[in-house]
Design a protein around this nucleic acid. Structure first.
Lengths: 320, 320
DNA sequence: ATTACTTGTACAAAACATGGACAAATGGCG
DNA sequence: CGCCATTTGTCCATGTTTTGTACAAGTAAT
């Protein structure tokens, strides 16, 4: 028979058996079947033999339901809600869910108008709507960069001030932070953990890009620890040791000369000296191009874009 | 027969079961039912089976009632008031300086242990629990300062590193930011607006204290605009003009000499020159004591503590 | 043959409703 | 101050609904 082929196809489409689903969700077989039978909580596809197969969407939904039930919601009350409202329930924010996000460009345009008019409440609303209308990945990798670069352009043209930008930054960062929080893996993922730590060097206060990277990694199912900006080398090394980090992801920005307190190269030397031998160093951000090439026994990798980071994760995952 | 299958899930969005409501409000089932039966404090909808379901409005109202009762109001006296008057009541009450000290100490202890073990997921959980178990004010004015000062002490003693502190800061800030967001004025139930803008001077990247101040002001029902840290004087002045701010609240921290890009006094001079005549300047934070006394036609006020800021708001409110 | 999974039924525990009772706290009032 | 009525949080008894888990009997996969 070509059962083998079926299996390969299933794996390729990320569709998994019940047992695998149970591992991912932490639920019991009887319970999931009861939820399905009594409330129609999920409707997994079936093999010709009648066996259930769960796709990514079902697993995600079951994880959501399980988490909400743990939080005190009654399964009967939430099993019928669509995914988007489950997410809202978990987030605790009310969002006037507009049907579908028509176009990324439209969303950006609306946001820019609201920012220009300093209507922060409206910006907040639009961001919330966009965040729920698209996937975390779309939000973090497309909408946010596009929005911020447009704002940068408008500032260059003198049609907006940095005040607009800062106020917007605070709101956008807040939403990214929420996404990061909500992506928290419920149960240990299938693979053994590869812990990643995120920080920016001492004197580097902007953790915007770092947050984007962390969101991307969580989205890929990595076990991430956000340690924050402005992290002294020795403290970061200590944290890496305590946490047993497989890699430290360092977000390096470009600072105006008068703000440089610790030279990036010096910082890296100190970090390299203090960091545990096995911990890899992944460097990203606008500031990496200016770094001197160092020689070190340590596995060091420079990524030029978030896509490159994403690619690396996919490669690592495929190998395992 | 199969009544399960026939059963229609007719719960609308954002309506939650009693158990979930209890978690959010921190009240007990018996108590809520008593309030409902005796005073009609809330009137939750019912499922066909008779079970109560609570919407956003009811949860908010119960939280409000619980907080006011904790502050000494009698439930019988306030249970019948409309939401707007409850908010008004909260905005005008003097808050007891000590709020369940033994409980607070427990929370802080648990948090410190989790931080020390670098268990960020646990910290996140504990913060979320505390945030819901106490009023925004208790969280922002008691738990957060106590927690952070304890961490500072542990760092001085060498029992914690700044990495712990930064990772914790990120999480606490996130929760403060959420509180700020959730305090968004209900429905303009309060007095005509006195718009306040919040920022830190150029080069000052820490907006932790600023956020605390903003939360405090929103709690008092003020119309607040959080403009963010590191704000150039001219941009801030422009924002004040556009927004028609009644006052700019500036959070000044103490910077190590090598990080000072713009001297605070110079910054203030520039700000004073650019700011609209009618906009007041409220200065707070650890850095205000080092400021030179300036002469200016502008109404300028220096506050030494968050309590002082709170007091000013109450005085303004009482006058109106 | 063993394991994993199916459907259907059954049952016990948890959650919740109602109404009543009770003691501690509160607040006049003589 | 003592005394009494009221307020208020908590607890209990009893019945119903909801929900998690167990099990039997049969089928597919390894």
């Amino acid at each position: 028979m070509d059962k083998w082929r079926i299996r390969v196809i299933l794996r390729a489409m990320r569709e998994i058996s019940m047992k695998a689903m149970l591992r991912l969700t932490g639920l019991s077989a009887d319970l999931v079947r009861a939820w399905e039978r009594r409330y129609g909580a999920v409707s997994p596809k079936r093999l010709p033999s009648g066996r259930r197969i769960y796709g990514q969407a079902e697993v995600r939904r079951l994880k959501l339901l399980a988490e909400l039930v743990r939080q005190g919601h009654s399964i009967g009350g939430i099993a019928g809600l669509p995914d988007s409202e489950l997410v809202e329930l978990r987030a605790g924010t009310r969002v006037p869910s507009i049907a579908g996000s028509e176009n990324l460009a439209d969303d950006v345009r609306d946001l820019l108008r609201a920012v220009g008019g300093f209507d922060l409440a409206e910006v907040q609303l639009l961001l919330a709507r966009s965040r729920h209308a698209m996937s975390p990945r779309e939000f973090a990798n497309f909408l946010v960069p596009q929005l911020m670069s447009e704002v940068g352009r408008l500032i260059d043209e003198g049609r907006m001030s940095v005040a607009h930008e800062h106020a917007l930054s605070d709101l956008v960062r807040h939403h990214l932070r929420k996404i990061y929080e909500e992506l928290e893996p419920v149960n240990g993922s299938l693979k053994p953990e590869r812990r990643l730590g995120f920080a920016t060097p001492e004197g580097h206060h902007h953790d915007f890009g770092l947050l984007l990277a962390a969101v991307g990694c969580r989205y890929r199912g990595e076990c991430t620890h956000f340690l924050g900006p402005n992290m002294p080398a020795e403290a970061l090394a200590g944290a890496a040791r305590e946490l047993g980090l497989a890699a430290v992801v360092l977000g390096v920005s470009v600072l105006p000369p008068e703000e440089i307190k610790v030279k990036p190269d010096e910082y890296l030397a100190r970090l390299d000296a203090a960091l545990p031998k096995r911990t890899e160093l992944w460097l990203g951000g606008p500031g990496v191009s200016g770094l001197r090439r160092r020689r070190s026994a340590r596995e060091t990798w420079v990524f030029e874009s978030l896509d490159a980071l994403d690619g690396k994760l996919r490669r690592l995952r495929a190998r395992a």
